[in-house]
Simulated assay, not measured.
Amino acid sequence: MASNRAEKAGFAAEAHSKINSKYDPQLSHQILVWIKDLLNEDIDTNGENNSFYETLKDGTVLCRLVNAIQANTVKKVNASKMAFKCMENIQFFLEGAQKLGVPSEELFQTIDLWEQQNLHSVQICLQSLGRKASKHGVHGIGPKESEANVREFSEEQMKAGQGVIGLQYGSNKGANQSGINFGNTRHM
């Protein structure tokens, strides 16, 4: 989509180029292959900047992705190609991703995808969703998330642990503060 925004200049241009430098085409390819396998649809998995954007920009693929992970997460997907309807689809995806457990820090802003402002944050969000997908019984991407390992100790074990002085407390090896002259002037 051609943006109607003015070209960035100065510090804004530097900041935007730094953000764009974080975009990883290989990660995009991996994400698109995962989406293709999960939706069982023929989508372009090239992963180049424009391909990634063109595949996801209207939000319909994203909404179908969330529904493939957990049915009826997104109730309505707009088929219209009008800008506000596409942005609404992206917002529906973001709400669905948050319901599936993606932390708010890993979500992107609608404008990041719609106007290609920050495709790296879109990658982060989809990668996080891929990790959360395995908790919903769907093949995900990325490393498997850890699960809680709660340990219960008896009162006797807790008391026994209080009497132990571990090596982590350290030792001063006989050091003291003699020879430190606070407030004295240096004698020459």
Rank of each mutant, 00 (worst) to 15 (best):
M1W: 08
A2H: 12
A6W: 11
E7K: 14
A9H: 04
G10Q: 03
G10R: 07
G10Y: 10
A12Y: 13
E14T: 14
A15T: 12
H16S: 14
S17K: 15
S17F: 15
S17Q: 15
S17V: 12
P25M: 12
L27E: 13
H29F: 03
Q30G: 10
Q30R: 07
I31P: 01
L32T: 01
I35K: 01
N40C: 11
T45N: 08
G47E: 03
G47L: 10
N50P: 02
F52Y: 08
L56D: 01
L56K: 01
D58A: 10
G59F: 06
V61F: 10
L62C: 04
C63K: 02
C63P: 06
C63W: 01
C63E: 04
R64F: 09
L65Y: 05
L65S: 12
N72Q: 10
T73Y: 12
T73E: 06
K76F: 14
K76E: 11
M82C: 07
C86S: 06
C86P: 03
I90H: 00
Q91T: 06
L94R: 13
E95L: 04
A97G: 04
A97Y: 01
Q98E: 03
Q98I: 03
K99P: 08
K99V: 13
P103K: 06
P103V: 07
S104F: 04
S104Y: 04
E105W: 00
F108K: 02
I111M: 07
I111S: 09
L113S: 03
W114T: 05
N118K: 09
N118D: 15
V122L: 00
Q123K: 10
I124S: 11
C125N: 02
R131Y: 05
R131C: 05
K132H: 05
G137P: 09
V138Y: 04
V138W: 05
I141Q: 01
I141P: 01
G142Y: 11
P143I: 15
E145I: 15
N149G: 01
V150K: 07
E152M: 05
F153G: 11
F153I: 07
S154Q: 08
S154H: 07
E156Y: 03
E156I: 00
E156C: 07
M158A: 13
K159S: 06
Q162E: 09
Q162V: 07
Q162N: 06
V164E: 02
V164L: 07
L167V: 00
Y169V: 10
N172S: 14
K173H: 08
N176H: 13
S178F: 00
G179C: 10
I180T: 07
I180V: 14
F182I: 06
F182H: 02
G183F: 07
N184P: 00
R186F: 13
H187A: 09
